[in-house]
Design a protein around this nucleic acid. Structure first.
Lengths: 191, 191
DNA sequence: ATGTTAATAAACTGTCTGTTGATTATTTTT
DNA sequence: AAAAATAATCAACAGACAGTTTATTAACAT
């Protein structure tokens, strides 16, 4: 008694998701109407409402799928290993490889016309879950800890966004090592 | 032949700006209608259109004023001084003091329900103008430079956002020094 | 006090939303 | 292959908002 989803349902959802991804290349999600979404993939507007309550609900369903995968991979990253060894572990490389494989959807959600709420959600997860064990390693007081975390998480996300926007030219392993360097050793502008 | 602005015009603009600031505490600008904006400050809807073409145009006029000030202050920051002395110069402290004085509007624009486009604009300015002279100091190759810049700019902005969201408890000079540390020496998790 | 300019009130068209009911088409079941 | 079940379509609806316009009232500068 698992999954028997009507083919029509699958098709409708697939068409709508694809249409949204396409439209989000051009404009922010807040400027996309249910009408043009349905026109774009020739789905009846009434049918849309049989599946989603509004555009942002459709977007959320896409985000949910991606977030669950990201969550798993992010949790695998050993910050302790990163710090003690100074080298990018396999988990972080895997993450960047995943981002590359899902370039389309990742760029859509994380970059320019992306969803600020989703970005904030990722940011919050990284801050609380991934980097939480760092706190034990900190020699700073509590106040500075908070700012340090904010700086690192924002910087890391900025690096990822830059990588995605730049067409992913640098290989995953290279980016992973760079990020590890920045976090553990600073940016080393002066040598 | 300088400035003789009708008091009524001044009042109308002031009311609308204030109403937008208030509404943006609750929801993103994309969810704010001209109607509720006018209702909130008891301005006729027709009057709104005599001044602005839409909500985002009103927002832009607010942003423009802030951006010009930020631009000036950001340009004063000597990155070279920061790097060679390792201490926060007066310009960067002044910037944080300004942010504190304009807490309301800065939080509205830069934080949670802020305007992504405006944030991106600030980010771009810092990247191209403020940190441009850093390139000469870099000993890294061009590719790494780009990522370094992205990391630093995003991290710095994240730090500022965290400071604003946290109620600006840390004094401007303290935050300025912290940012300088992070940029020039890394976050120094391990000592 | 008067001419000028801004704000108001009210109306109108057009677009999008969210919902409904009747009909057609497709899928699944038997 | 026929029947039963379910999904998609079409058309129509009321409600909200966008922009624009016109006549009217109020505030302003001098």
């Amino acid at each position: 008694m698992e999954k028997k989803e009507d083919r029509r349902v699958t098709r409708t959802r697939r068409m709508l998701r694809q249409a949204l991804v396409n439209l989000m290349r051009e404009k922010p999600v807040s400027a996309i109407t249910v009408r043009e979404l349905c026109d774009a993939c020739e789905i009846n507007r009434g049918t849309f409402y049989a599946h989603y309550s509004d555009v942002s609900s459709l977007l959320t369903s896409i985000e949910e799928e991606l977030f669950e995968k990201l969550q798993t991979m992010l949790a695998e990253i050993s910050t302790r290993e990163m710090l003690t060894q100074g080298r990018a572990g396999p988990a972080i490389v895997t993450l960047f490889e995943f981002l590359k494989e899902n370039e389309d959807i990742c760029r859509m959600l994380l970059c320019d016309n992306g969803d600020p709420a989703f970005i904030e959600r990722v940011r919050a997860f990284v801050r609380t879950e991934v980097l939480s064990d760092w706190r034990q390693l900190f020699s700073d007081d509590g106040e500075r800890q908070e700012y340090t975390l904010a700086f690192l998480v924002a910087g890391s996300l900025g690096l990822v966004q830059r990588w995605l926007d730049g067409g992913l030219e640098t290989p995953p392993a290279g980016i992973a090592q760079m990020l590890t360097d920045f976090i553990t050793k600073g940016v080393a502008v002066l040598r």
